[in-house]
Nucleic acid binder design. Sequence first.
DNA 1: GGCGCGATGAAACTATGATTACAAAATCGG
DNA 2: CCGATTTTGTAATCATAGTTTCATCGCGCC
Lengths: 287, 287
Amino acid sequence: MAETAQQRIRTVASQLTRAERQLADAILENYPMSGLGPIARLAEKAGVSAPTVVRMVQKLGFSGFPEFQSALREELEAQISNPIAKHDSWSEAAPQGHILNRFTDAVIANIRQTLAHADPAEFDAVTALLADSRRAVYVAGGRITHALAEYLHLHLQVIRPGVRLIRTTSNAWPHDLLDLARGDVVVLYDVRRYENSTLKLAEIAAERGAKCVLFTDQWQSPIARHAAYSFNCRIEAPSAWDSTTAMLLLSETLIAAVQERAWERTRDRMKALEAMFDATRIFRKFV
Amino acid sequence: MAETAQQRIRTVASQLTRAERQLADAILENYPMSGLGPIARLAEKAGVSAPTVVRMVQKLGFSGFPEFQSALREELEAQISNPIAKHDSWSEAAPQGHILNRFTDAVIANIRQTLAHADPAEFDAVTALLADSRRAVYVAGGRITHALAEYLHLHLQVIRPGVRLIRTTSNAWPHDLLDLARGDVVVLYDVRRYENSTLKLAEIAAERGAKCVLFTDQWQSPIARHAAYSFNCRIEAPSAWDSTTAMLLLSETLIAAVQERAWERTRDRMKALEAMFDATRIFRKFV
DNA sequence: GGCGCGATGAAACTATGATTACAAAATCGG
DNA sequence: CCGATTTTGTAATCATAGTTTCATCGCGCC
């Protein structure tokens, strides 16, 4: 019985039903505060009904909601009176030095610094470029960053026409540049161990009058000199490799910004896409 | 109304009667915990009657005990909410409501919640599985998540032998499962608009005795039932799409953990890789 | 010491919150 | 695709917590 409600929830997490899991998430979301109010408020917050709450706390081994609540209060009291337990780790369940906490610390620091250095005017300008459907968009990444390029490409494709992914890892990439016209946009990802082929691509694109947008690391790829806009993302991590999380964040934000700017068109394209998905039955019908 | 209950009590302290002062002392003694329980318990603790409590909170300006209690809860919540989150502006240069700040806010919240839900024991178990080079590893993602799968695959490949990437977006994926043996590990990514082919893959893998590791969203893919381990990542974003940043973070952390565990081997493999890169002149010599 | 007034708690009452029963919905297996 | 089973929410019920009333108590004052 020395077990906290949080632990109990985790223990039974696997045997919970859909609504119960939803509820468990809501409780854990800002634990234990949300459990201290009346049952109806908790139910509403979790988007389930009050009986579901009762059933779930009974599954956790409490006789009913009041007992559960009083357990929460006791835990909270113990925690508050013990200042060592101050909330400064990401995964409460993991020890302080666990890699889950160490790595997340580093990534948050990366995000903070990346955002601090990002120029909103530049960001808005890039958004405008990408939202302009008269310009074709080419997206390219290197060995490590190809996954990011692919991700950006996938989403931009839904938002607007004329988006192409270039694989610089294959040596057929010059084929992809045949249609490149003055004023087109080339988005490049390049992080350290900067790649020759990506640099070549940027040189050619710049020469042909395309606007290059570069996502690079804090040490800046040599491509920067050819780029009209460049975002420097911190990528340091407590690992033999770097973390591209901040870079993904910036890319996703860019996607969101472009989409916001071109929402009318995007919505139509999404509808068309949905219709095609329905026709192909790729996805499960519900949920 | 920005006044805390504590301050209000102090303000009216002088005009309180004997029983009320007794009660006030009890509340302030371990504020605000004692006010969170039922009125009877507080009354008992203070050695007064329930009506006294009601009269007193009304003197404080609350309509009744429930309102008083809910004010206490709010105060407490504001007090313990993680200070790390209280970063009101990520990009100082951008206005408060700029998408750079809005999106980052959402992603940080996702990361925090994802980490809060992650079970370190489960994480460590998955690390061990992936570090065990006797087990082959298969990595698969769907339409949206393929980029993540590719990223994990790329890095795991450097750390250990026997890693394969499966494209569930192509219908030739069953070919990739021909060699799947009991005890192998299948890492799956599946977020909403859960895909049928990924589910099928999971079913087959589970049937063949492979261990499934699932990265999914907070609503949980139906694959969860076949998975030995599953990580639920928050993916909500102020956008028509979701954000997979938290998922990438967790994946990168996993990569770092596996690498840490198998560092000797990883180092040798990295050296070999470097040698090959040198031979191919893919990368720029310096910087 | 008795009178009057505010303070207080017991008890009745009311409202609200928790629980249960049941029916609808979703899911699963064939 | 259909019937069985589980899950879930709605509505009714029950319990408990909060409030009000009112009689009592203590205290100061005459």
